[in-house]
């Protein structure tokens, strides 16, 4: 799986929890919170969606590592997600 594929997966997880954003261009290095007014409920749902899509257990202390597209891709790769 290329970085691009992982980025697509992250974006679809984001759009799944915030369907009104579907189709938005996601800035790679801007925190989702700042870009799209993502609140704590949206963010938790996003983490759940990533967990379901990848099977990776994401501890709460790692949440900051998922705050932007680039960071989330790097995190998933570091966790060994590349199926």
């Amino acid at each position: 799986m290329t970085d691009n594929d992982i980025a697509k997966l992250v974006q679809s997880a984001l759009f799944a929890v915030a369907p009104d954003l579907e189709g938005e261009t996601v800035g790679p290095d801007v925190p989702f919170r700042d870009q799209f007014e993502i609140d704590s409920m949206d963010f938790l749902n996003f983490v759940i969606a990533l967990h379901k899509a990848t099977g990776i257990e994401i501890p709460e202390r790692d949440y900051p590592k998922l705050e932007s597209l680039d960071k989330a891709v790097a995190y998933l790769k570091a966790k060994g997600f590349a199926q």
């Binding site: 915030a18 369907p19 009104d20 954003l21 579907e22 189709g23 938005e24 799209f36």
Partner: peptide, 20 residues
Amino acid sequence: ASAPLVAARGEPRATPAARR
């Protein structure tokens, strides 16, 4: 409130967030 991404007749495709 939950307008889908599809365009209304004659309108360009836009995300609901963008419409708002």
